[in-house]
């Protein structure tokens, strides 16, 4: 199967029912996207598919063959963090950090469409992301500031 991730084309030989998440983590060694629930409920595995923040755990690899996938590893440009990554860093918007990649991906998708979201718009856009350490107010602050 052919796949474009972070601007590079790959051809993968994997079982037919392989998820995008497994392909990223196991075959491409892009482990920034995390497994959290396997049913698209927690957001830890979110990646950008043609700009939309999408759970990669329930996305079959076969369904993204003609699309552009961007993972957390693809946000940094020439060693510079993406402004959303920088804002998470500045606000210490995490505890264990496991939700962080998915949070940042959701926030990047939101800010691309809506550079100045209200608090309510942030909450709605990120409702699919769980921070089990529950530092939600800090994440809202980081997304506002980014």
């Amino acid at each position: 199967m052919k796949i474009n991730v972070n601007g590079t084309d790959y051809t993968l030989d994997v079982p037919a029912n392989t998820s995008l998440l497994d392909a990223l983590r196991v075959n491409l060694h892009l482990t920034g996207s995390k497994y959290g629930c396997g049913e698209g409920a927690c957001g830890a595995c979110r990646v950008l598919i043609d700009g939309h923040a999408t759970p990669s755990c329930i996305t079959p690899l076969a369904s993204v063959q003609d699309k552009f996938v961007v993972t957390i590893e693809g946000l940094e440009k020439e060693g510079q963090l993406h402004p959303v990554q920088q804002a998470f860093l500045d606000e210490d918007a995490f505890q264990c950090g496991y939700c962080c990649s998915g949070m940042i991906i959701s926030a990047v998708a939101l800010k691309t469409k809506n550079p100045r979201p209200t608090r309510q718009e942030i909450i709605e856009a990120m409702q699919g992301n769980i921070c089990r350490c529950c530092v939600y107010p800090r994440i809202i602050k980081a997304v506002s500031k980014a």
Partner: peptide
């Protein structure tokens, strides 16, 4: 700030 924070926001 969290001492190894950058490795978390970069997914590394």
């Amino acid at each position: 700030a969290k001492v190894n924070a950058k490795s978390f926001v970069s997914g590394k």
